[in-house]
């Protein structure tokens, strides 16, 4: 081992009297940095492979025909694996949604900011509390104290604009990105 140490000494440190850090330190740092970059670059495809694949992204938007939905009716469609509530609101629903003192709301938002056309309310049917699907789509469902939706899991009440009014949910039901393709059809996503 004495020989080995001697070899390391002559090769490892810079020439006698040379100023600055030894050459071996620089080589070590450069090698380690190169290896770290290599491993990082190699890790990226593995991380990226866990992102949604092309076949999942291909199903990322859903088109809905609104024509058969009568006023007062609602349908639920699947979009990105989650329920989307589409409700054809009656004039009474709309009036109830507009006639609210925003200052009293836990998550203040005017009804006009939540719809593109007042009679069509489109939003994610996922309670903002812990992700249950609220009741209120079917005529026989309990609709809560504000005539909108009621989440049976922990008792959140939503109004006819899908805004949280009472209960543990922190935010209004989320409105997804959607566009009217024609007067009576939309594309969600």
């Amino acid at each position: 081992m004495a020989d080995a140490a001697a070899i390391a000494d002559t090769q490892g440190r810079g020439k006698e009297g040379e100023a600055g850090p030894p050459r071996r330190d620089f080589l070590k740092l450069a090698t380690t940095a190169m290896a770290a970059i290599g491993v990082g670059a190699f890790a990226w495809p593995f991380i990226a492979s866990m992102n949604p694949s092309a076949s999942v992204l291909a199903l990322a938007s859903t088109e809905v025909d609104l024509a058969p939905i009568q006023a007062g009716q609602a349908i639920t469609v699947m979009w990105r694996g989650k329920p989307v509530f589409v409700r054809h609101r009656t004039p009474e629903d709309i009036a109830a949604a507009r006639d609210v003192n925003l200052a009293q709301l836990p998550d203040p938002q005017p009804d006009s900011a939540r719809v593109q056309k007042p009679e069509w309310l489109v939003m994610l049917g996922v309670c903002t509390h812990l992700g249950c699907v609220p009741l209120g789509q079917r005529p026989t469902d309990q609709k809560g104290d504000f005539g909108g939706w009621f989440c049976p899991c922990h008792g959140s009440h939503y109004d006819t604009s899908g805004r949280i009014r009472r209960g543990p949910a922190p935010r209004n039901l989320e409105v997804p990105e959607y566009t009217f393709l024609t007067e009576t059809s939309i594309r969600i996503g």
Binding site: P45, S49, A54
Partner: peptide
């Protein structure tokens, strides 16, 4: 294994899906 389905009806297709749809699936 995160993308593979061990079933005779889906195994071959899931491997093709890895090759075509999964990000860098071809590389893995």
């Amino acid at each position: 294994a995160m993308h593979y389905t061990p079933h005779t009806a889906y195994a071959f297709d899931s491997v093709e899906r890895i090759m075509r749809d999964v990000n860098y699936g071809w590389l893995l």
